[in-house]
Amino acid sequence: MVYKIRDKETGKVYEVTIDEETNEITVYDVKTGKPVKTVNMTIEELKEAGYEVEPV
């Protein structure tokens, strides 16, 4: 599923895909559409880390 996340401190917005089964999150560069990095976190962990998470 695709989400937009926003860093509450910097205001930067990222587009991510989240595999609900493995909790693998792939972060994409919004301008190029290319993957930047992959992390292993849940949506709740993202929120605790200071991100706003919205489904696209």
Rank of each mutant, 00 (worst) to 15 (best):
I25G: 02
M41Q: 04
I43P: 02
E44H: 10
P55S: 12
E54Y: 13
E24A: 10
T22N: 12
K12N: 11
K4E: 07
D29C: 06
Y28C: 07
K8H: 05
T17Y: 13
N40H: 14
V53L: 10
E44C: 08
G50V: 03
G50E: 03
E45Y: 06
T42W: 00
P35E: 08
E21D: 11
T22I: 07
M41D: 01
V2N: 13
T42N: 06
Y28S: 05
G11Q: 03
K4C: 14
A49R: 10
M41A: 08
G11V: 00
K47Y: 10
I5A: 05
G11E: 02
K31T: 13
N23C: 07
Y28E: 01
E54C: 14
R6Q: 07
I18H: 09
G50Y: 06
Y3G: 05
I5N: 00
T22C: 11
Y14L: 04
V13R: 03
V30L: 07
T22F: 06
E45S: 09
P35C: 10
Y51S: 01
G11C: 05
T10Q: 01
E45R: 07
T26L: 06
V27R: 01
K4Y: 14
I18P: 00
I5M: 05
Y28R: 11
P55E: 11
E20Q: 13
P55V: 10
K31Y: 14
E45N: 07
K47T: 09
E48R: 12
D7T: 00
V2M: 13
D29E: 06
G11Y: 02
I25F: 03
T17F: 10
Y14V: 02
E44M: 10
T42H: 03
T26I: 10
N23Q: 08
A49Y: 10
V27F: 15
M41W: 07
Y28G: 01
P35D: 03
R6K: 11
K47F: 10
K8W: 04
E21Y: 11
M41P: 01
Y51W: 14
V53M: 07
D7K: 02
P55F: 12
V36C: 15
V27K: 01
K12D: 12
T26K: 09
G33S: 05
T26R: 07
T22R: 14
Y28I: 11
D7F: 06
I43K: 04
K31H: 14
V16W: 03
I18S: 02
I43S: 02
E54H: 07
T17R: 13
K8Y: 06
M41F: 08
T42F: 02
Y14D: 00
G11W: 02
V16Y: 03
E45K: 08
K12R: 11
